[in-house]
């Protein structure tokens, strides 16, 4: 039987994207770590200069010592926002921008990489969704009776090729670790990459600035992914551990919802599910994926 290379099943758009695979700091130097990207088994490590090295794995075991000098057949690698990104195709030169990340007074941190049994696009859509706050993040990001999702704007920016939702507002009991009382929080959501999303929300500490939270999804297979969480916060009092705990609490609440969603791949046919006005950003996202021709992790529209 001829062996089939899993790479052949990946649509060309997805194959050429930069894909996140690890938090740079969590990758050991000179030791092997294993992961899977788009059904392709990978091995990775960091060299003595701290630079990540990534290659397609065969029988390497996690924890084995390795001399990165000996790895010749390497995949492209870049680092950004504290994470390692690679690609199974020919990636564009640069990763999408998050300019705020470079601001000197921000606390930037990874909050762990968590495996979820759902496709990456389903997880992106959950990240864009405000309607679930009172039910899934009860007493933190929302609480009954404040369940209304007010009108907001969505556009697909031609120039930056990303989905953008603005003027999103929601009543939140405890919007951030640093919040002390309920407030109406304003959000901006960006989807600058088919499997990544960045949000900007009102910052309890400084009303002129925004906290930035991003979710980078590593598509492991069509129906599994790993969520790599980034926070870039204006918060002078909380520790990194506090901030991580807050974000993990939130994500831990989304996990059982995502893992109980069917089908696991995101259906792009508008008649597969029932959208409401509050889902405008999700509709735009599904359309954008469709137009791009992404087929990995989605159920494409029957043509």
């Amino acid at each position: 039987m001829p062996s089939i290379d899993p790479i052949d099943h990946i649509d060309p758009i997805t194959r050429d994207l930069w894909q996140v695979i690890a938090a740079t700091d969590e990758l050991p130097v000179g030791q092997i770590q294993r992961t899977t990207l788009l059904d392709v088994p990978l091995a990775m490590t960091r060299d003595s200069a701290g630079l990540p090295v990534v290659w397609r794995r065969s029988d390497e075991e996690a924890g084995d010592d390795v001399d990165p000098e000996n790895i010749l057949d390497r995949l492209p690698v870049t680092t950004g926002y504290g994470f390692v990104w690679t690609s199974l195709g020919t990636p564009s030169a640069a990763l999408f921008p998050i300019p705020e990340y470079a601001e000197a007074d921000r606390k930037n941190m990874s909050c762990g990489s968590i495996g979820i049994h759902v496709s990456a696009p389903r997880a992106v859509e959950n990240f864009l969704d405000m309607g679930h706050f009172p039910y899934v993040h009860t007493d933190i990001l929302g609480a009954e009776p404040h369940t209304e999702v007010k009108e907001y704007d969505v556009e697909v920016s031609e120039e930056r090729d990303e989905v953008l939702a603005t003027r999103c507002r929601f009543m939140q009991p405890r919007a951030a670790k640093s919040a002390t009382h309920a407030m109406e929080v304003e959000y901006v959501y960006r989807v600058p990459h088919p499997f990544c999303s960045v949000l900007y929300k009102s910052c309890p500490e400084d009303e002129n600035r925004r906290d930035v939270i991003a979710i980078f999804l590593q598509p492991v297979s069509e129906d599994r992914c790993r969520a790599h969480l980034l926070q870039s916060m204006i918060d002078s009092t909380s520790t990194i551990t506090d901030l991580r705990r807050f974000q993990q609490t939130i994500f831990g609440q989304d996990k059982p919802i995502l893992e109980n969603q069917y089908p696991k791949r995101l259906p792009l046919d508008p008649r597969a599910e029932t959208p409401i006005r509050a889902d405008k950003s999700a509709i735009a996202y599904r359309r954008w994926l469709s137009q791009k021709g992404i087929t990995y992790g989605v159920i494409p529209m029957a043509s």
């Binding site: 109980n260 969603q261 089908p263 599910e273």
Partner: peptide, 10 residues
């Protein structure tokens, strides 16, 4: 659920 496909048994 017809909305976003979540299991109603939860």
């Amino acid at each position: 659920c017809l909305h976003r496909g979540v299991r109603l048994s939860i």
